[in-house]
């Protein structure tokens, strides 16, 4: 096993251990934290495809995180109230089945990303950052001002959505579900990175002009990456809504976009397990330092500065060394 492989295994084992210890020691709070790490990690894994592999600094991934959350929340609320989501042209009933909610969240986010990406990927650099931010803010204000689904107050989900054969209200079982989704997400991003598409995407990050000169349309490759990235982050959003049994516009806010970028950078940009390490560190700091001082984010800022200045590879770079290609 390579050193990076060993580090990845430790991260995974640590996460599972925290959840198991929490369940055994009757401290459900720990189980919830572990699930939160898995979900934020999955959201980061999604963002990492655009940001890490493609070099596309999306400052609007909260749009997809929140959209996934609202898909779960809206479908569940209709099911709870026995009201169809739509009656025309076809009747769409609400549902509390994750196996229906997840594809719906994936599809909604992919569609949204296709539209947002098609417009914003025509720009680059600071303009791309600003346009993705603008789209996310549009969704944020829309969610706040649309009273049907709670507006500013958010939308509660009374019972977690259901997964066949599991009791999702049981913290450990829900954690296992999140962990499985995370592992699948990381597995997918690993295959993507090493595929033909991943090679073109990573080359386009380094030298888009060269990629065009060998006959590859950079825009299409980036758009596909943006869509896949958004869909994975959206799935994480749907899980996050279930974790909290609550969706609110905060999931769509620019702070959420920023936090997703922060955890990817903390963990190691472009590293498969980087976002998971980053999410672990982020949640750990939030709860340990957050308990000590409400100004914990100042320290987080300091750490981020340290990573950007001295340890570009993030946590994984420190633990597993520089990334190797080929």
């Amino acid at each position: 096993m390579t050193r990076e492989g060993a580090v990845n295994a430790v991260i995974l084992a640590l996460l599972a251990a925290v959840a198991l210890a929490g369940a055994a020691g009757d401290r459900p709070f720990l189980v919830t934290l572990a699930a939160k790490v898995a979900i934020l990690g999955l959201a980061g894994v999604g963002l990492n495809i655009a940001l890490g592999f493609g070099g596309l600094v999306s400052f609007g991934h909260a749009a997809f995180f929140g959209l996934g959350g609202y898909v779960a929340g809206i479908l569940a609320s209709h099911a709870q109230n026995y009201e169809p989501v739509a009656e025309w042209p076809i009747t769409i009933a609400g549902t509390q089945e994750m196996l229906i909610i997840w594809p719906a969240a994936l599809a909604a986010c992919a569609l949204a990303a296709a539209v947002i990406g098609a417009l914003s990927l025509r720009t680059s650099g600071i303009f791309f950052i600003m346009i993705t931010l603008a789209f996310a803010q549009m969704l944020y204000y829309f969610a706040i001002s649309w009273p049907a689904y709670g507006g500013e107050d958010g939308l509660p989900i009374y019972l977690r959505n259901a997964f066949p054969g599991l009791d999702t209200m049981d913290g450990l079982q829900f954690f296992a579900l999140c962990l499985a989704a995370l592992v699948l997400g990381v597995g997918l991003s690993w295959r993507l990175r090493d595929s033909r598409f991943g090679l073109a995407l990573e080359a386009a990050r380094q030298n888009p002009e060269r990629v065009a000169a060998v006959g590859i349309r950079v825009f299409r490759v980036r758009l596909a990456a943006f869509v896949i990235s958004a869909a994975i982050t959206g799935l994480a959003g749907a899980l996050y809504a279930d974790l909290n049994r609550f969706v609110s516009p905060a999931m769509l806010s620019w702070q959420t976009s920023g936090e997703l970028i922060v955890l990817v950078i903390l963990g190691g940009v472009g590293r498969l397990w980087g976002p998971v390490a980053g999410a672990g560190l982020f949640v750990f700091l939030e709860h340990v330092l957050g308990g000590v001082s409400e100004y914990w984010q100042a320290l987080l800022g300091l750490m981020l500065l340290g990573v950007v200045l001295f340890a570009r590879g993030g946590l994984l770079g420190l633990l597993a060394g520089a990334r190797r290609h080929g």
């Binding site: 595929s195 598409f197 080359a203 990629v211």
Partner: peptide, 20 residues
């Protein structure tokens, strides 16, 4: 060079099989 061969092949959208 694999990137260039890939460009010439016109089949960029392979998502799962490792290119190398």
């Amino acid at each position: 060079v694999v990137l260039a061969v890939l460009g010439a092949s016109g089949r960029v959208f392979g998502f799962l099989a490792p290119a190398m």
